[in-house]
Design a binder for these strands. Structure first.
Length: 860
RNA sequence: GCGAGCGUGGCGAAACUGGUAGACGCAGCAGACUUAAAAUCUGCCGACUUCGGUCUUGCGGGUUCGACCCCCGCCGCUCGCACCA
């Protein structure tokens, strides 16, 4: 009688074996084996491991275990992205110290994570809030400071009024703070910046090397974010005697110098220095500028906003024709982009056209599509397509690219401007007015200015004795911490009280994992062994945040000689979320649904409809949308509960089996039960295996074929990140094994041994138990990945579908590799085919044979 | 508005470079075992059908011996950027 598989005892037993063998610690010494670095985006210690984490880390674990079986030295570390606002919020709400709160969360989550049976090298674990980590960050920060990549400036910054701190451009989503969701305000502050724009070209150009190993989507998002455009920066001189004081020209930027002959006005941003100067002199201009600022901030408003303008009465001179062109102030011109001023060619730019139509300004087409005549005109839609120049003097007849080059050449020759590449990307503002972050290692001295903290004084540690009862930066309020003497002159000085954006912490942690205890920020030799990360796995939400910052910092640190790698992540996979149906029992008076937890819900099918009832009260429930698991909607399923009920392996299997990894997976109780059944059945196969049972030649041949087909399919599934397909093949292979449950001999044993090794990345505990039950040596963990043999997988006979005119009408079974003439003869002789042809009065005109696949009869 | 992606049974999905659409799982139905239920096992499970078949991958067209796959035009959904000159 077969025994039941007890995950509750088996899983801890196997985890203990791995721990006793220290199975996942990996050495920095050269072993002669190739290296493979698998990394999942490390978690913020928010309190508990949730399903999204679990899916992320299980995917990484599948890759890590598979690569190990393939003979690689696999580095698979784990750490904690431990600085951040929630810790300070907890301090304010509950009076706990952010550090205590964070470290206790880490302890909880580490235990939860260990339940998942991940092949992690825990000896390399660290948290970014540990001075042994952030002190090294301060060291390299100062290195970049020395090299001019860190600077301080007054600037208009994004201010999050809820978190009371500054945000970088990347951290403002739809005008709101990425974390708090509060509407972001503009403030003028003195801030520290990292010169990411210096790497703009390199960051774009590097993307092409990642083709194929990074999702196209992410590469494109980064490219768009950096937003490189090539164009012309040029001066439009004011007409004689008409210049405003202190200005002799308006400097504009354009990507369409080819359309210069179509210029009908020059536009200034409301914040342009000339606009401001005019506003000071004329209250009507001031009123107009104020009108432009009103409502400007939010996206929806910008979209709706009508174009408005103010004719300054000033005129500038066209560089080619000498004609006078009016200067307008317009609300749609951005002061932060380019020079904050443009020349407008309404015929070939929709915004300019909308504006020109409203204010009745000339619209002169200068590019016409192929075939259009001299009368080509635009109505209310600007022409932005390809074509050739006309109405344009010396540019007439040229195509757009040639005309651009020619216009630029003429302007440059005349000394009126030059070709220029500009970027949408701004420097990265890294100052945060918060306590729980890495202190910026700078001391401000009245006499000497900002001075780097000397290296022997690093790390600059955070003080512990603070109060969090008032808003604002607690560091700044600390009675003594900021008062220091100047390292240069010894005079009275003040520490920088801003801390670094936490995205700085996560911009180099992957390099620190190479040797987390190194004296240098990065152990160059160890980093050279392991980096780049071969497979990085995480959510798409970091496409232009973390992933861009990390690429920048890696380049900067390499240029500073701290490491030797430019591109940190050779392969990237962005995984989908874990989502769950929501349930609610009526609405609150406020109109919000009264959410009910899934554990309190029973789903039945009544008359083909899914009906939800509340278990505890029997009340009928409404089934809501399928959404990302979140506490507020109560649609959360905790990994620990699943492990308790079904075991880790069933949970691991389910999060990977139901959807492709890049897509969201919908959690369902039924789904995980199915996975749990699979675990049981696999065990039953191994447990019931009788090594003494007699072999059977026919069964052996088909088992061997299926074994090899499965090896191929599962290997390809794992390598191609199609875990769901790989798992489906494993289910199918189990069905095959079950069909031959009485079989014995070598073929059956090989099939089972292969099964154990193929399931090992997904259900490692079960695989170990099965391996041991089979009497194999050692751990399946160290067993080599099965090798596919095409010859053994090949069927002797193939079933060829017979199509007539592309529709399947019958089939014929023939030996594999039959020649076309044989196939053709067999198809034509097929009784079903003959009957069909006769019934429809058709005769065969042509026969197409795809060897071993299909035969198609063209009939008429 | 611009850019990218997606659309296949009741549901999640599969189909490798154009070659038997719906593998595998969930839900459902029927049966076996059981005093009964659960568990387990076996079978069925796209739609229509006069049981011969016919239709079927969002809609309309095209290319091809053959299209979920390639091309053109629509419709719908999701994501990213958003007055970037």
């Amino acid at each position: 009688m077969a025994t039941r598989y007890e995950s509750k005892t088996a899983e801890p037993r196997q985890q203990a074996r791995w721990a006793a063998a220290d199975a996942f610690s990996v050495s920095n010494e050269d072993t002669g084996r190739p290296k493979y670095y698998v990394l999942e985006m490390f978690p913020y210690p928010s309190g508990n491991i949730h399903m999204g984490h679990a899916r992320n880390y299980v995917m990484g674990d599948v890759v890590a275990r598979h690569k190990r079986a393939q003979g690689f030295d696999v580095l698979h570390p784990m750490g904690w992205d431990a600085f951040g606002m929630p810790a300070e919020n907890a301090a304010m709400e509950r009076g706990v110290h952010p550090g205590d709160w964070t470290w206790s969360n880490i302890a909880t989550m580490r235990d939860q994570l260990k339940l998942l049976g991940l092949s992690l090298d825990w000896s390399r674990e660290f948290a970014t809030c540990d001075p042994t980590y952030y002190g090294k960050q301060q060291a390299w920060f100062l290195e970049l400071y020395k090299r001019g990549l860190v600077y301080r400036k007054d600037g208009v910054v994004n201010w999050d009024p809820v978190d009371n701190t500054v945000l970088a451009n990347e951290q403002v989503i739809d005008g709101r703070g990425w974390r708090s969701g509060a509407l972001v305000e503009k403030r003028k502050l003195n801030q520290w910046f990292l010169r990411i724009t210096q790497y703009a070209d390199d960051l774009i150009d590097g993307l092409s090397e990642l083709e194929g190993r990074w999702p196209d989507k992410v590469r494109l998002m980064q490219e768009n974010w950096i937003g490189r455009s090539k164009g012309l920066q040029m001066k439009w001189a004011f007409a004689a005697d008409a210049a405003p004081a202190g200005h002799d020209a308006v400097e504009v930027y354009t990507t369409r110098p080819d359309t210069l002959f179509g210029a009908s006005f020059v536009g200034l941003a409301p914040d342009h220095p000339i606009s401001k100067q005019l506003a000071e002199a004329d209250p009507r201009v001031a009123a107009f500028v104020a009108e432009c600022r009103k409502g400007g901030a939010s996206q929806a408003e910008i979209e709706q906003a009508e174009k408005i303008g103010w004719d300054t009465g000033l005129k500038v001179v066209h560089p080619f024709t000498g004609a006078e062109v009016p200067v307008w102030i317009a609300n749609f011109i951005l002061s932060e982009y380019g020079t904050g001023a443009v020349f407008a060619c309404p015929a070939h730019d929709q915004r300019d056209l909308d504006f020109a139509r409203k204010y009745d300004l000339p619209v002169i087409p200068v590019v016409r599509p192929e075939g259009a005549g001299d009368d080509f005109a635009v109505a209310n839609e600007a022409y932005t397509g390809p074509g050739s120049l006309f109405h344009s003097d010396f540019l007439n007849g040229l195509d757009i690219d040639t005309a651009k080059a020619e216009a630029i050449a003429r302007i440059e020759a005349a000394g009126q401007g030059e070709a220029k590449t500009i970027y949408r990307l701004r420097d990265w503002g890294v100052s945060r007015q918060r306590y729980w972050g890495c202190p910026i290692p700078i001391i401000h001295c009245e006499a000497c200015g900002p001075v780097a903290v000397p290296s022997e004084q690093l790390p600059v540690e955070l003080p512990k004795d603070l109060t969090f009862d008032v808003p604002g930066n607690p560091l700044d309020r600390h009675p003594t911490w900021k008062h220091v003497s100047c390292p240069t002159c010894g005079g009275e000085a003040r520490r920088e009280t801003d801390t670094l954006d936490t995205f700085v912490d996560s911009s180099w942690y992957f390099a620190r994992f190479a040797d987390p205890k190194a004296d240098a920020p990065i152990n160059k030799a160890a980093a050279s062994k392991w980096l780049p990360v071969d497979q990085y796995i995480g959510g798409v939400e970091h496409a232009v945040l973390h992933l861009l910052y990390a690429r920048f910092i890696t380049r900067a640190l390499s240029d500073a000689g701290l490491m030797d790698v430019k591109e940190p992540f050779a392969g990237l996979f962005t995984q989908g979320m874990v989502v769950h149906e929501t349930y609610y029992e009526g609405l609150e008076p406020s109109g919000k649904p009264r959410w009910v937890e899934p554990s309190d819900v029973r789903i039945e099918t009544v008359d083909g409809q899914r009906v939800a009832t509340r278990l505890s009260t029997g009340a009928p429930l409404t089934i809501g949308d399928i959404e990302k698991m979140s506490k507020s909607k109560k649609n959360v399923v905790a990994p620990q509960d699943i492990i308790e009920a079904y075991g880790v392996d069933a949970g691991r299997l389910f999060v990977l089996s139901d959807s492709p990894p890049e897509r969201d997976v919908q959690w369902s109780a039924g789904g995980v039960e199915g996975a749990s059944r699979f675990v049981q059945r696999v065990w039953t196969e191994f447990d019931g295996f009788d090594p003494e049972a007699a072999a059977n030649a026919d069964v052996d041949a088909s088992l061997i074929r299926e074994t090899h087909k499965t090896i191929k399919a599962v290997s390809e599934g794992v390598e191609g990140f199609r875990f769901n397909s790989a798992i489906a093949k494993l289910y199918a292979f189990l069905a095959t094994l079950r069909q031959h449950d009485k079989a014995g001999g070598e073929a059956k044993k090989t099939a089972l041994s292969t099964m154990a090794r193929l399931i090992a990345p997904f259900t490692p505990h079960l695989a170990e138990e099965a391996w041991a039950r089979l009497g194999e040596d050692g751990m399946v963990l160290d067993a080599p990945w099965p090798v596919y043999d095409a010859a053994l997988a090949a069927d002797d006979a193939v079933t060829l579908p017979i199509q007539i005119g592309g529709k399947r009408r019958g089939e014929v079974v023939l030996p594999r590799g039959s020649d076309n003439a044989t196939v053709e003869a067999a198809a034509l002789a097929n009784p079903t085919v003959q009957a069909y042809l006769a019934a429809n009065n058709l005769s065969v005109r042509k026969v197409i044979v795809v060897p071993d696949r299909i035969v198609n009869l063209v009939a008429g």
